[in-house]
Simulated assay, not measured.
Amino acid sequence: MVNDKDVAVIDRKAANNDSKVAVNDRKVAIVGCGFVGSSSAFALMQSGLFSEMVLIDVDRARAEGEALDISHGSPFAAPMRIYAGDYADAADAAIIVITAGAAQKPGETRLDLAQKNVAIFREIVPRIRETGFDGILLIVSNPVDVLTYAAVKLSGLPESRVVGSGTVLDTARLQEALGAHLGVDPRDVEAYIIGEHGDSELAVWSSADVAGVPLKDFCEMRGHFDHEEAEARIAEEVRSAAYEIIRRKRATYYGIAMSVRRLCQAIMRDEKSVLPVSALMVGEYGLSDVAISMPTIVGRQGIECRVPISLDEAELEELRSSADRLKGVLQQV
C-alpha cells in the first residue's frame, strides 16, 4: 500500500498550505500528453464543457505541441483557450484529469504497471496538492483502481472527489457487444462490468436487461437460446478487448477519451448519472480499503453514492475475489 511515512510527509506539507484555490467551473487540466491525454484533450475541446484547458507533461515541448495542434481546431468548436502549463496553472481547475504513466506493453497486464505508475503518482499528486487544488481528480492512468486508491491517500481530498474512470469503458464495450449480438441500439442495453478494470473484472448478467426486459428473455425473443455460451464469449471479448487493440496498434486511446468526456459531462452538468467508476469502498458488499468499480451516482461534487445493484451469489463471490486481487497488489506496491 501507499507508505504511511509518505502520507505523513504530505500531511505536514498540507498543514503549511491550508488555503484552497477558488474553483473555475469552466477550466479543466490534463496531466500527461501521451495518446490517452491528447485524445482526451481533443474530445474535451469539442464537448463545450470548458472554455479553458491546460496541458501538463514532463515533456513541456510535447504539451506545447499538442496544445497548438488542438487549438487550431477552435474555429470549428466552442471558444476555448488551450495552452501548455505547469501544476500552478491547474490550481483553479474544476477537474484535473490524470493520464500520465508508463504505457501498457503487449503481453503486460494492467496490474504489471502498478509498481512503476504508483511511483509516478508519488511525484504528481503531492505537487497538485501543494497548489491548493480543491476540485475533482479524475484518474485515468492504469492500473486505474490501484492508482485511484493511491490518489485518495496522497491527495488529501475528500474520498468523494477522487474518481477513477474504472469500468466505464469496459461497460461501454459490453453494451456495444450486446447491441451487436441482439441487433439493438447499445444505448438501450442496461448491463455493467464491475470489479477491477482488468483481468478479474466481471459482467453482471443476473440483473442485465434491454429496455426493461430481462436479458435472457430478450435474447430468446431475438432467437438466441444458448445463454451460457454467449455470455462467456462476450465477457471474454470485453475482457481481452484492450489486449487485442494493443496487439494491433500498440495502444488504446479513442474509447477511453470518449469515456473521459462522458465522465466530465456527468460531473460538470451535475447529471447524477449512474456510471461504474472506481472509488474507495467503505463497507459496501463487505468491501473496504480498496478502490474498485461499482455503479455509482456521479455529479458535480464527484461521487454521491454507490447504487446497490442486485448480484447473485456467484457474482458476489467474483467481486470479492477481484477486490482481494487488488488488495494483494496494493500490499506489494
Rank of each mutant, 00 (worst) to 15 (best):
T171N: 10
T171P: 14
T171L: 10
A172Y: 02
A172T: 14
A172R: 10
R173P: 00
R173S: 02
R173K: 02
R173H: 05
R173V: 03
R173L: 06
L174C: 13
L174M: 13
L174G: 07
Q175R: 09
Q175C: 10
E176A: 12
E176D: 08
E176T: 12
E176G: 04
E176R: 02
A177W: 01
A177Y: 00
A177G: 04
L178A: 05
L178T: 13
L178G: 12
L178P: 11
L178W: 09
L178K: 07
L178S: 05
G179W: 02
G179C: 06
G179K: 05
G179I: 13
G179S: 11
G179E: 13
A180T: 08
A180K: 09
H181Y: 04
H181E: 13
H181T: 14
L182F: 02
L182W: 03
L182P: 12
L182G: 05
L182E: 03
L182N: 01
G183F: 01
G183E: 05
G183V: 10
G183Q: 00
V184E: 06
V184F: 01
V184M: 02
V184C: 13
D185E: 09
D185Y: 08
D185M: 04
D185L: 04
D185T: 13
P186W: 12
P186I: 11
P186D: 13
P186R: 11
P186Y: 12
R187Q: 14
R187V: 07
R187E: 15
R187I: 08
D188R: 08
D188L: 07
D188N: 12
V189G: 10
V189N: 09
V189P: 11
V189F: 11
V189R: 08
E190K: 13
E190C: 13
A191E: 07
Y192L: 10
Y192S: 09
Y192Q: 11
Y192R: 03
I193G: 06
I193L: 08
I193D: 09
I193C: 14
I194G: 05
I194C: 06
I194V: 15
G195Q: 03
G195I: 00
E196S: 07
E196H: 07
E196I: 05
E196V: 10
H197T: 04
H197R: 01
G198S: 12
G198T: 12
G198W: 06
D199L: 03
D199C: 01
D199E: 12
S200K: 03
S200I: 02
E201L: 08
E201W: 01
E201T: 12
L202V: 14
L202Y: 09
L202M: 15
L202K: 05
L202E: 12
A203W: 07
A203T: 15
A203Q: 14
A203E: 14
A203C: 15
V204Q: 00
V204P: 05
V204C: 00
W205V: 13
W205F: 14
S206W: 00
S206Y: 00
S206V: 01
S207D: 15
A208P: 11
A208N: 00
A208I: 04
A208L: 00
A208C: 02
A208R: 00
D209T: 15
D209R: 06
D209I: 04
D209G: 09
D209N: 14
D209E: 14
V210Q: 07
V210C: 07
V210G: 06
V210T: 10
V210R: 03
V210K: 02
A211E: 15
A211R: 15
A211Q: 15
A211M: 11
A211Y: 06
A211G: 13
A211D: 15
A211N: 15
G212Q: 01
G212T: 11
